[in-house]
Structures are given as structure tokens and as C-alpha cells.
Write a protein that binds this DNA or RNA. Structure first.
Length: 747
DNA sequence: GAAGCCCCGTTTTTT
DNA sequence: ACGGGGCTTC
């Protein structure tokens, strides 16, 4: 049988995890160590060797992509595999949705079985409308989303708590659940239900948040077993709530056995040695490949010069026979891609940018989706109001008027659909308006299409008189019309594929577009295409390329300004993730003239964490590029410093003068030394930048307490209080420690 | 209601 | 560094 071949491919280490017999097993899997292979092999092993039915396993992932990958691999082993058997395989949210729809009593919470899943923005829209209607006092409406998530008690003495209660009721009455409602309600209802999976299997478990851990816990009974894989060194989403130290939490809660996979099969030794500099959990990371090329650190003038350089370099690489799709460029911020896009387009370099373009980002499609939502669910007042009052496509009425109009309708909802159109015409100026109105079309939509075979695109298009609403005179008309028709085509295809009736299929499509994202124009990054891939470091997780360029490794960009050490740690893991995407060649670059004020000139402290012998020297460039530029920078630094001296007291002045570099005398020194001196200057400036005004260092503090740290080496204490100590390390820069845990030794 | 002050956020993104 | 929003003061 084929499954044996799959299991034979495993290494001893991987085999141990797959064949493990403990009730709860956590696999601490290093980057590139075959995490997904182990997870899938475990499922195969349980199914084919241990004879566990697939439907006795709940397999949880974070992305649809990961879920699909697992399903595909299982289908490859068994072509006739019934997808119904894999009904508990999917993202946390899609499994929750399945449970709520098929197995749990949502009516206990006031919901109906055919509830809708809504986008996060829609919840805010609903909240804003409640605020308006109920005349609630809410401050900082522009950060309402964050406030609703975070504040358990109102921070600003307003009606936030009342709003949250009203919002909850409103969602129930409109029969809608947000993403977090899906998990929350499932956890709530599972307590009373008897759903008893034999196995709960979790991928990328380090990304779980509290709610997801509760979801796992709610699935557990005394015979349920857990198998989870993850990598604590790849936690890059803690800012959106992934629970702290999930491994420890789970291990403790279920008395789990922890196994680790330490061998990396992806990158060559040169790259792994660099990656190790950024490993924080002291874990072992070993490779099994050859040494390969040293990594390159390149200095660039600015992002435009760099884009031109990259265009040339990529052509060169491609000419050696490397396909474009083996080359990737990573950056910290989305907007860094624009300059690359422009320059690459001009130079004929094929590329794809990973952009999260969804239906809601395209106004006409957002409007159309809401129209369909209201047509399917007349309780969905907020969508109705949006559709009717939209300034471009709506009925040229205000939100208030639309709300009144809809209220009139829902008060009449005890009447059947046919009677509805005779209601309260005070709001509609003449009968004609109402008879032919979009509102009427939406309200009678379900009746009109209930007994119909799946209609043509044009039939739906005509029914809603889309042409009238898209305004043939408008500049965007042609484009809008194409988009709407494309959306409707996608819808019809979707319904045909799922072999459903029209209305059933439409309902499903509406929910899917929230939960799974419908790709209308294939805007998502196409991995098969032979193009250079441009993406953020975050988006690079889980991928691999032969050539990787990480650009903008400047302080203030990589790492982004960090407010706490937790944040700085996360920035470091983020660079670790980027570095470990590279199989054969890695190049880091930084700017000497960055385009934004937030970014500081010169290489990031992260680059200085890499020992020099691991880096292919860039000296030839440095020498030829410009001593002039260097000199200019040193002068600029000197001016900054002189300003500071003017603003500070005399004792500090004396101290700083000792460190000064006489630029004129140093012109003939080699550039290496000059760079070193410049770095010293920067360090002096950094000490100052964190101490404004009277907080400046006193002479007693500075000369000079040296301490040493196992990882960062010897450094100078720059600040100290009861709780914290700040040390400046030559190779790393400034680092804050909590005294209790710092393990610093006095020199 | 204009002027000035204070607080906060700025970035990454899946479902 | 800078802008938005809320609050206080005149």
C-alpha cells in the first residue's frame, strides 16, 4: 500500500513523533524540519495503521491554505476519499462553523441554523449605527474596533459597555456571527454537547490565541488525545493575540510529552549559521546540507538605487538558468513594494506582489455583496441601509431615510412578501418609486428565484437593473460592469460546483466569501507562475526560495521601533523567519539615505549581531562607492552631537569630546576603520537620544561600568534603576534587561 | 469656536 | 515626527 511509502520516507527523529504513543504530544519543530510532513504522516499513521476513522479526528489549521494542503495530500493516497469524511479538517473557524450548523443547538443562543458569517468591518458598521440610533456617547469612534476588542471596562467614561450589549443583541436579531463569535459560541455550546473526537491534531500551534486554546479544550474529553506541532521561534503574530508561550501552557495543562525536530533540511550551512544568531530559545538547530555561499550584506544609497540594482541582479541570476519563481524579495512594510513594482515593470522583470485585495476593497463589489446579503436576509438592516444610501450606486437617499424605510418594512414583516409592497409609502414619494425600487427588488428576490433553475448571469444583472445603479455615464461604468458580471459568474460557477439549488448556493457563497475569501480576479499571489515574488516578511512564513533578498535592514524598519523587549524579540523572530526562507543564497541590504524619517541611516543592529566571518564582505563596493558620502555622514553626525553638547552641561561635554573623531585627519584611513568610528559616533548619539534634557548621563554614572552577558558579550551600563538595567553592547546596541533575570556579570 | 494641551497611534494580517 | 481627536480655557 502507498501509505507505507509515505511513512518510510521519514527520518528517525520524525518517525519517533509519528509513532509516539503518549496521550498528548507536542512537537517542537525547528524551522525547515518537516513539520507538515510529520503532521500529515501522523494522520496517515493513525488512519491506516491504527484504523482511526478520519471523522474521529479534528484537524485544526490557521489558514485555509494549510487545510487544503493536508486534504490534498490525503486525497493523493486515496482517490475516492469522500470529502465528507474530512468534515472536521479545516481552520478553527471553519470547523466551528460546521459544528454550529450541523451539530450544535444555536437556537439556544437565539440564532437560527442559517445564520450569516460577517466580516470584521461589518460589526463596526453595525456598532456605529447603534450609536447613532440610540444616541450613545462613544469616544474615539475611529478606534472603535480596537476598543471593542480590548476594553472590558470603558476607559473614557462613555457608553462602551452598553454598546457592546446592544451590539450582541443586534447580531442575534440580524442572525449574524463574527469570526470570534463562531469560536465563542462553539465553545459555549460544546460544554453541553456530546461531541467526542478521538484525536485533536493542531498545525502551527504556536499561533493559537486564548480563544483557540479554549476551543481545543472544549473538544477534549477523557479519551481524547492531542498531537500538535509548532515552532516557538516562529511566533510573529503575538501582536494580534497569539497566547504567550503556548507550548508551556499546553504542556502544563495536559501533562504533554514534548519531542523536538532539530534538523533543518532546507538551507545550506552558511545560511543556518546566520539564522542561529537570531534564535532565542537556545534550541539546537542543525543542518544536513553543504556549506554553500556566504550570505551577502549590501549597503544601498536609497530604495530607488536599490530597486535598479535588484533589477540588474535578478536578470543576472535568471541568465544563469534560475527561474524567476525561485527568487523572492522580503520587506517589513507593504508600501515598500511600490518602488520595486515601478522599476521592475520598466525593466521587464516579471513579478507578483502578495497583496490582500478582497472584495471589500473594490467599492462596486462590496456594494453588490451587501445587496445580495440583504436580498437573502431582510433582517440584515445594516446591509440594506448601506445599499440604499450608497452615494454612487444607491437610491440617493440618506442613511437616516434608508433606516426609516427599512424600519417600515420590518414592522410589516408579519405580512407575507406579496403584501409588503403596499406598506407605508410616506417614505417613498410616489408609488412608482417604490414599485420599481431597488428595495422592492431585493425584498422579492427570494420569492422570484426560489423555484428557478440556476439563472444566467444576465438574468440576475437585469433583475436588479444593475445598469441603472452603476450609471452608464460614470467614468467607472465599464470597469464596474465587468467586475459585477465577473462576481456573478464566480457565484454561478460556485453553485454549480457545489451542486446546490440557487438560493442555497448563494447563501453558502455569501458565507464563504467572508470565511474563505473568494478570489474574483485571481489577485492572490500565484505560486506557480514564473515570477519574482515580492512580499512582507510576515507573508513569507511557510515558503522557501533559492534566492532571498531582505531589503531595508535599517534600525527603525527591521527592527521597527519597538516599545518593549517583547516587541523587539518579535522583530528578531521576524527576521529569523525571513532568513530561513532561503535555500541557497541570501542577501541583506540597508540604506544610507532612507526615504522616511522613521528609518535611521546605516545598518541595523540586527546586522551587527551577525559575526563578520559569516558575511561576504562588501568592501570593494564600500571603497569605490564613496568616501565622500561617508565623510558627509560623519560631519552630519558631528553636527547633531555638537547641538547636543550645546544643550547639555559642561561635564557631559568633556566626556563627549574624548570620543570625538577628527574627520580631517582620518581621510586616508581605510573605509573599514571609518565605518567603525562612525558606528561609535552613532552609539554616542543613541545614548543621548534616550536621555533628554536633565536626564542626561552624569559623569558619575558613565566612567564606566562594564558588564558581560553570555550571548551579547561585554557592554557598558548606560542606565539603571531598581527594576531595569540598560546596557550598550558593541555588537548589538542597546538592550534593556530586567535585573532579576538579566544574568549579567560585572567585569 | 479658536487656541493650546494631552493622549494615542503609526506596522505586520488570518479567519 | 506628526496628525487626529478630545478636552479645557477664554
Amino acid at each position: 500500500m502507498d501509505y507505507k511509502k509515505e511513512l518510510d520516507k521519514l527520518t528517525d527523529n520524525q518517525r519517533e513523533a509519528v509513532f509516539d504513543e503518549s496521550n498528548v504530544c507536542l512537537v517542537n519543530a525547528n524551522v525547515g524540519s518537516g513539520k507538515t510532513t510529520v503532521l500529515i504522516s501522523k494522520i496517515i499513521y493513525l488512519h491506516y495503521v491504527k484504523q482511526i476513522d478520519y471523522c474521529d479526528m479534528v484537524v485544526l489549521t490557521f489558514t485555509n491554505k494549510a487545510a487544503n494542503e493536508i486534504k490534498e495530500r490525503l486525497t493523493m493516497l486515496e482517490e475516492n476519499l469522500n470529502m465528507e469524511d474530512l468534515r472536521f479538517f479545516g481552520t478553527f473557524h471553519s470547523v466551528a462553523l460546521y459544528l454550529l450548523r450541523e451539530l450544535l443547538m444555536v437556537d439556544q443562543l437565539g440564532y437560527q441554523k442559517d445564520f450569516f458569517v460577517i466580516e470584521p468591518d461589518e460589526e463596526v458598521d453595525i456598532a456605529l449605527r447603534i450609536i447613532q440610533e440610540e444616541k450613545l456617547k462613544i469616544k474615539y469612534k475611529n478606534r472603535l474596533k480596537k476598543r471593542l476588542e480590548q476594553e472590558r471596562v470603558s476607559r473614557y467614561q462613555d457608553d462602551l459597555i452598553e454598546l457592546r450589549e446592544r451590539l450582541q443583541k443586534e447580531k442575534v436579531s440580524q442572525n449574524k456571527m463574527t469570526f470570534s463569535d463562531l469560536l465563542l459560541n462553539t465553545v459555549h455550546l460544546l460544554k453541553e454537547a456530546s461531541i467526542t473526537p478521538k484525536w485533536v491534531i493542531i498545525d502551527e500551534v504556536q499561533d493559537s490565541d486564548k480563544m483557540q486554546l479554549e476551543f481545543i479544550d472544549a473538544l477534549m474529553n477523557k479519551n481524547t488525545r492531542i498531537f500538535a506541532v509548532g515552532d516557538p521561534n516562529q511566533v510573529i503574530y503575538s501582536w494580534r493575540g497569539s497566547a504567550f508561550n503556548v507550548f508551556y501552557t499546553l504542556k502544563d495543562r495536559y501533562q504533554a510529552r514534548e519531542l523536538s525536530l532539530s534538523v533543518n533540511f532546507r538551507s545550506n550551512i552558511s545560511i543556518l549559521e546566520v539564522a542561529k544568531c537570531f534564535l532565542q530559545n537556545g534550541g539546537r538547530l542543525t543542518g544536513n546540507r553543504e556549506r554553500g555561499n556566504k550570505i551577502i550584506v549590501k549597503r544601498q544609497y536609497d530604495s530607488f538605487q536599490e530597486a535598479c540594482y535588484l533589477a540588474d541582479r535578478i536578470k543576472e541570476i535568471h541568465d544563469t538558468g534560475i527561474p524567476y519563481k525561485e527568487i523572492a524579495i522580503f520587506y517589513r512594510l507593504q508600501n515598500q513594494s511600490t518602488i520595486l513594482e515601478n522599476v521592475f515593470s520598466k525593466n521587464g522583470i516579471p513579478f507578483d506582489v502578495s497583496l490582500k485585495k478582497t472584495i471589500q476593497d473594490i467599492p462596486v463589489l462590496n456594494w453588490t455583496m451587501k445587496l445580495l446579503r440583504f436580498a437573502m436576509n431582510e433582517k440584515d438592516i445594516s446591509s440594506g441601509i448601506y445599499v440604499l444610501s450608497h452615494k454612487d450606486y444607491g437610491e440617493r437617499i440618506t442613511e437616516k431615510a434608508a433606516a426609516k424605510l427599512l424600519k417600515g418594512c420590518s414592522d410589516m414583516s408579519h405580512l407575507n412578501h406579496g403584501d409588503m409592497f403596499s406598506i407605508d409609502l410616506n417614505f417613498a414619494e410616489k408609488e412608482d418609486f417604490f414599485e420599481e425600487s431597488l428595495l422592492q427588488r431585493m425584498l422579492s428576490f427570494r420569492k422570484r428565484f426560489s423555484k428557478v433553475e440556476i439563472p444566467e448571469v444576465d438574468e440576475i444583472y437585469q433583475y436588479f437593473s444593475f445598469d441603472t445603479h452603476l450609471h452608464p455615464t460614470a467614468a467607472s461604468y465599464q470597469e464596474d460592469k465587468e467586475l459585477v458580471k465577473e462576481l456573478l459568474r464566480t457565484l454561478i460557477t460556485y453553485i454549480n460546483e457545489h451542486k446546490m439549488s440557487f438560493l442555497e448556493g448563494l447563501q453558502d457563497f455569501i458565507n464563504s466569501s467572508s470565511l474563505y475569501g473568494v478570489n474574483i480576479l485571481n489577485k492572490d499571489i500565484n505560486n506557480e507562475a514564473d515570477t519574482v515574488k515580492l512580499m512582507t516578511l510576515h507573508a513569507s512564513k511557510g515558503l522557501e526560495f533559492s534566492y532571498v533578498f531582505i531589503i531595508g535592514v535599517n534600525n527603525g524598519l527591521i527592527p521597527l521601533q519597538a516599545k518593549s523587549f517583547e516587541e523587539e524579540d518579535e522583530e528578531r523572530r521576524l527576521l529569523f523567519v525571513g532568513i530561513t526562507r532561503a535555500k541557497d543564497n541570501l542577501e541583506l541590504s540597508y540604506y544610507t539615505n532612507p526615504d522616511t524619517y522613521r528609518t535611521m541611516a546605516g545598518e541595523s543592529r540586527f546586522i551587527r549581531m551577525i559575526p563578520k566571518h559569516l558575511i561576504e564582505s562588501d568592501d570593494i563596493e564600500r571603497e569605490s562607492v564613496n568616501l565622500q558620502e561617508l565623510k558627509r555622514q560623519i560631519l552630519a553626525e558631528k553636527n547633531v552631537k555638537m547641538d547636543m553638547i550645546k544643550n547639555s552641561d559642561n561635564s557631559t561635554k568633556t566626556l563627549l569630546e574624548d570620543n570625538e573623531v577628527d574627520v580631517e585627519d582620518n581621510q586616508v584611513e581605510d573605509s573599514e576603520v571609518q565605518v567603525e568610528k562612525m558606528n561609535e559616533e552613532v552609539e554616542v548619539r543613541e545614548i543621548h537620544s534616550t536621555h533628554n534634557g536633565n536626564e542626561l548621563l552624569t559623569p558619575n554614572e558613565l566612567p564606566v561600568r562594564k558588564v558581560s552577558h553570555a550571548k551579547y558579550g561585554i557592554g557598558t551600563v548606560t542606565r539603571e534603576d531598581d527594576l531595569m538595567i540598560t546596557v550598550l553592547f558593541k555588537a548589538y546596541g542597546k538592550k534593556e534587561f530586567m535585573k532579576a533575570f538579566s544574568e549579567l556579570k560585572e567585569e
